[in-house]
């Protein structure tokens, strides 16, 4: 019973998160401006991180969680660099 509840709820959560990623992807493709796309990419990173967490919950290993941590780190750095790029036209001055 518990197993059924867990696997169903985690599958449903994964479905919701994939739908959220699709929304972010829509904004990423449609734009209309560069800052909208960067914002969508940032949201996409967060959704992907949460999706990895839900995948990792049932497997029980730490591998997915470390991957989620790496995604969070890279997402932060890349969005910061992209915002800097939008402002000045170059990443390193």
């Amino acid at each position: 019973m518990s197993t059924a509840i867990l696997s169903w709820s985690i599958s449903l959560a994964q479905l919701l998160l994939v739908a959220a990623m699709a929304c972010c992807l829509y904004r990423l493709v449609v734009g209309p401006r560069a800052q909208d796309r960067v914002l969508a990419l940032d949201a996409l990173y967060v959704c992907a991180m949460l999706l990895l967490l839900t995948i990792g919950m049932l497997s029980g290993g730490t591998l997915y969680f470390e991957a989620a941590l790496v995604i969070a780190l890279l997402g932060f750095v890349s969005t910061a660099a992209l915002a800097k790029f939008l402002m000045r036209g170059e990443v390193i001055e």
Partner: peptide
């Protein structure tokens, strides 16, 4: 988990 995923989806819908 469903609450968290639903709130995230709501935020993404707002983005659209």
């Amino acid at each position: 988990i469903i609450f968290g995923a639903a709130v995230t989806l709501l935020g993404a819908i707002g983005l659209v």
